[in-house]
Design a protein around this nucleic acid. Sequence first.
DNA 1: CCCGTAGCCTACTGGTGAGTAGGTCCTGGA
DNA 2: TCCAGGACCTACTCACCAGTAGGCTACGGG
Lengths: 216, 216
Amino acid sequence: MSVDEQRRPARVKRLPREVRERQILDAAVRVFSEHGYHNASMDEISEVAGVSKPMIYAYLGHKEDLFAACIRREATLLVEAIAGGVRAEAPPDMQLWHGLRAFFRFVGEQRESWRVLHRQATSQGGPFSEELMGMRGRAINLVDALLVRSATSHGVPTKSTEAMAVALVGAGESLADWWLDHPDVPEKTVASWLMNLVWMGLGDLVDGTSWVPTPE
Amino acid sequence: MSVDEQRRPARVKRLPREVRERQILDAAVRVFSEHGYHNASMDEISEVAGVSKPMIYAYLGHKEDLFAACIRREATLLVEAIAGGVRAEAPPDMQLWHGLRAFFRFVGEQRESWRVLHRQATSQGGPFSEELMGMRGRAINLVDALLVRSATSHGVPTKSTEAMAVALVGAGESLADWWLDHPDVPEKTVASWLMNLVWMGLGDLVDGTSWVPTPE
DNA sequence: CCCGTAGCCTACTGGTGAGTAGGTCCTGGA
DNA sequence: TCCAGGACCTACTCACCAGTAGGCTACGGG
């Protein structure tokens, strides 16, 4: 066994394109999430992926394209995770709860994906943030729809729900980041904090009558 | 009058160091906020500042130092603006309201500062984010303190206020960004949306019994 | 057995931008 | 009047890294 073979992605040879593309994307997400878009070098990505640089260019294109591909893949996973968590048959108030839980579950399980999406993609101007903002927009719309559905199910007209959705999404992002630094807090707890804050408000929280999810 | 003289900062000569440093910082904030840390070039900053590159190095040091100096200055201004807005004699619930308003006022007036702080500084790892996170931490502590004060003034023990503060700060950041794209909404309105969300919760919002600030 | 093609590499180039060497010129004090 | 030092500049160097030229090898079909 040579020295090389004990290194990271045991440099297997002649894999089908599909597989290589996945390996490259995985490596790219890792490296981008660690160093940020600009400080990530294509050389490092190629090394982590166990592939030479020209392969990346051949399969995924230029650095921007590669980054965009990462964003697209991870953002799609996130949005799908949330949408999948929201079960349509549940009562509207519960749907928000399920969405929140799905969100935090995703963040807990895919920290690197989350870092890339939240920290990196947001801060780069240009084509990415459009891509990403589109996804964020979809998330916000999803939340917005939940809010509206809740409100109308209570028979009340709503206003400024978009802004509420934006605030809620922002609170979620911020809390998710905080959670990364406090991993001992269980996912359900974080989710219920946010649900309480957002549904009952601090005023009620302070009164001690907080909203508690039904046991599952 | 030469061609050069009609350009941006009418290239005045032999100004005292103090003044130059301010000009350079102003330029740096503009350029960083526009292009982001990495895409901002020292050459462009020097051009916008109306000064040659070596001056920047002589006065503010390397690119990292310069960026850190921007962060420090702007973050201090922001925190001071909020702290100044929170009037100590007001009742605790009102202090939160005043803090929110001061925050949104700052964002509205200092868009570039806000962009640098929120978008850029957060996403760069390393020394900056420490600097910035320190400031963000101070903001969170400030909010946390307000929450605790509110709660105890109601005679209720509190828990997980730190997480609440984090969520609230995140909601504020997100809403501030949204506001940048919807400048026609008055500052007071945005602030009251967030106050409502956070104080009464969506549940009450939906009931139509929202919290309305007293006219000033 | 030969050749097309798909997987894969080493070894380069060229641009960009951080950082600097080495000066000039002006002002104010001795 | 002279000189110290601070304001200020032009014109570089040099490293890093995105992106590429030009190959080589293994497999499958004819």
